[in-house]
């Protein structure tokens, strides 16, 4: 049996409400909340980045897996906000957690699906028998240009998954990826903010890739939507995942637990992985979980998980996503938010 042996998630404590961003740009907050189904989002502290988020999420994954960090053979961090252009984020993470130095490390990038890429490769290496354990992480401190629609959603957080073959808490039964050259969203080198193609990010990008990955995954597995207790999709806003889930045949109830975006925002590479972590925090042995990520550019990775008896032994060993989402929040106004996100030009 191959799959997740330990998982962890992390969200910053800072938040900004949609009203505070809308007020700055003269936008109608109520219309935005109705249209996007977004209410507030996480904001990274001045001292937080993809690396610090990944370390805290992976620390929780290690607490749940209860394994010697030295046995981890690969560490992959997927993000579109790696703090260095040249120096893998994982080099710092392994030294922080006592992993390696005999370990394979790489930074992944595929817009919002870099995290599920890291999970897929970690799982595949363990399944191939190359190593006993591999760590895949999705984390971001997402960028959104001031005044752009993305500013209401781009948030911070991440989740980490240790793949292995013993004491598996969620077996991976099937996977399927769907990728094409679709220029819906991109960021050129040295540019601070991403660009996107407005409505083009919807039908030919998000919906096409998630639907085709999800449909093929169902066909490959011979399962139907009602076989699943939970479903989670990439969450660029509150509306898209509900629409694509409905199109694939899933109900609101199946998507409810993983649908954390209205209060978290879009954690880019951490989006569907944090939704999966929220589901694992409550799932029962035997439950099946359907997950499909989406990364602009564009592609989707689909996974079918089945939760095992082991989940009951590990779930309370580390902080839960919903607790981090609902508690200890510190609200920022737009001025503070602009400072935290380094949107103010300062002298050196």
């Amino acid at each position: 049996m191959y799959g997740i042996v330990g998982y962890g998630s992390y969200l910053p404590r800072y938040r900004i409400k949609v009203e505070d961003i809308a007020k700055q740009w003269g936008a109608d907050a109520n219309a935005l909340k109705r249209g996007l189904l977004l209410y507030e989002k996480t904001v990274p502290g001045l001292d937080e980045d993809t690396i610090t988020i990944s370390v805290e999420a992976a620390r929780s994954a290690l607490q749940r897996a209860k394994i010697d960090p030295q046995k981890i053979g690969a560490v992959y961090i997927g993000s579109e906000s790696h703090p260095y252009a040249v120096k893998p984020s994982g080099t710092i993470l392994i030294d922080a957690l006592g992993i390696g130095p005999h370990v394979h490390v790489a930074s992944y990038e595929f817009a919002c699906k870099a995290g599920s890429e890291a999970m897929y490769v970690a799982y595949s290496l363990v399944k191939a028998g190359e190593m006993d354990y591999a760590l895949g992480i999705g984390a971001d401190t997402s960028q959104g240009a001031p005044g752009d629609a993305l500013e209401y959603s781009a948030s911070a957080g991440g989740a980490a998954f240790i793949m292995g073959k013993e004491k598996v808490v969620a077996e991976i039964l099937f996977t399927h990826s769907y990728t094409s050259d679709t220029p819906d969203f991109w960021r050129r080198e040295h540019e601070f903010y991403p660009r996107h193609a407005g409505r083009f990010t919807g039908e030919p990008a998000y919906f096409k890739h998630i639907y085709n990955s999800g449909k093929s995954l169902l066909e490959k597995s011979g399962m139907i939507p009602s076989d699943f207790q939970f479903a989670v999709f990439h969450m660029p806003n509150g509306k898209f995942p509900q629409e694509v889930g409905k199109k694939l045949g899933f109900t609101k109830e199946q998507m409810e637990v993983g649908w954390i975006v209205p209060w978290m925002g879009n954690t880019y590479s951490g989006s569907s992985p944090t939704g999966l972590a929220a589901i694992l925090d409550v799932a029962k042995p035997g439950d099946k979980i359907f997950m499909v990520s989406f990364g602009s550019g564009a592609g989707s990775d689909g996974f079918i998980f089945q939760v095992t008896d082991e989940i009951e032994k590990v779930r309370n060993l580390a902080p839960k996503l919903r607790d981090m989402l609902d508690n200890d929040k510190i609200y920022l106004d737009y001025g503070q938010y602009a400072k935290f996100r380094k949107k103010i030009i300062l002298n050196e």
Partner: peptide, 22 residues
């Protein structure tokens, strides 16, 4: 104690990490 960035070596230098309390 949590893992945080402590300081930067200017605009193009290293990010320096360490521990802080919450």
């Amino acid at each position: 104690l949590v893992f945080r960035k402590i300081q930067d070596e200017g605009k193009s230098g290293l990010h320096c990490y360490g521990y802080k309390a919450i």
